[in-house]
Design a protein around this nucleic acid. Structure first.
Lengths: 187, 187
DNA sequence: TAAGTCATGTAAAAAGTTACATGATTCT
DNA sequence: AGAATCATGTAACTTTTTACATGACTTA
């Protein structure tokens, strides 16, 4: 099984969904750190069903196209549990901005400054979105956030990773700006 | 041009290298945030040479196989400068551990605890390696680290991103451990 | 003598992204 | 009237990773 399969199972463990709904959630990043396009979803759902990890039910609709609603099975849930507790393989990150940084000594300061200011802005904007979501969760899900057996806790935990990631990234960009803005020997 | 091409240019802008040397550096992560295997390097070098961005010189060796030493050209350097200051495309991160986190409410606490303790350990270990490198750089390259036109500054800056990344990741794992270790309602 | 490094490539397989394909309904 | 959403798929293309291929020399 590839990771995409577990991503679908993780979604379906919360509630039954159509392929379209799954694709939409995956497009908008599940837990802020996973995504896939719909062309990946439909074939994978078929595979999962062939393996008995999910089942579908045809739901007829009058105002919209009919849809297949998928639900996770007992074996699917078991497999998901097993996968979720196995340490993840190290996945070496690729970050283009850091690669650019490796060559930043070649360019003039003003151009470099603009680059890091732009990226700092991006990460601060994303951080703000996350912080808003966090505020909402802390109000709405108050009690659940102390319960590791609640899906709300899981969503909150993933969000906290996103917040930490963006905050640290923005801080690093800020440090770069500081370094580049300083009066220094040539450059 | 794909990013791999710029990665090669970024390396060659510092010093001439053979394909083998480039592959070795790329295997061990350039600036900690980029990598590639040697099967990617040789064809890309050929493409870069065809575009006039690099040139090679055959260096005959008696004790070892002969090698082609590549050097960046003027146009190569210009293109690299241009790329280095253009904002990077947003590259959505994929992180398997965060995806697992999204499903963590399904598993029992002890298994979850073990998972985050293991990942915390990994990131702390990487952080320690980075911190050692940092200490070394701050001693050896002292003066250069204030000069944005120095390649040493660029390496140091990339390393600082690595340090921030690992520190934040480890802290998040630590937070997860705290949450899961707490006496709470069921689980 | 077996494993590891230096050295350069090609080819096959897997994974991921983008485009193609269709069609009804609802919102602007 | 045109764009967007709901809905499900397939096909082509690009990218990335593994494996194949060869061969000399050095270290354990």
């Amino acid at each position: 099984m590839r990771t995409i399969g577990y991503a679908l199972l993780a979604l379906l463990a919360r509630e039954p969904l159509s392929g379209y709904d799954i694709a939409r959630q995956l497009r908008e990043r599940v837990g802020n750190f996973w995504y896939a396009s719909h062309s990946h979803v439909y074939p994978e759902l078929a595979r999962l069903e062939a393996d008995g990890l999910v089942v579908h039910e045809l739901v007829e609709q009058s105002d919209r196209p009919d849809k297949k609603v998928f639900a996770i099975t007992g074996p699917g849930r078991d497999l998901l549990r097993q996968w979720a507790t196995a340490p993840a393989a190290e996945m070496p990150t690729r970050d283009e901005l850091v690669l650019k940084t490796y060559a930043i000594w070649l360019v003039d300061r003003s151009a470099a400054l603009a680059l890091y200011r732009e990226h700092e802005r991006r990460h601060l904007a994303q951080l703000e979105r996350y912080e808003r979501a966090r505020g909402w969760m802390e109000q709405e899900w108050r009690a659940d956030l102390r319960r590791p057996d609640s899906p709300h806790f899981a969503s909150y935990a993933a969000l906290r990773r996103g917040i930490g990631y963006e905050r640290e990234y923005a801080a690093w960009c800020g440090w770069m700006v500081e370094q580049l803005a300083q009066e220094g020997p040539a450059g």
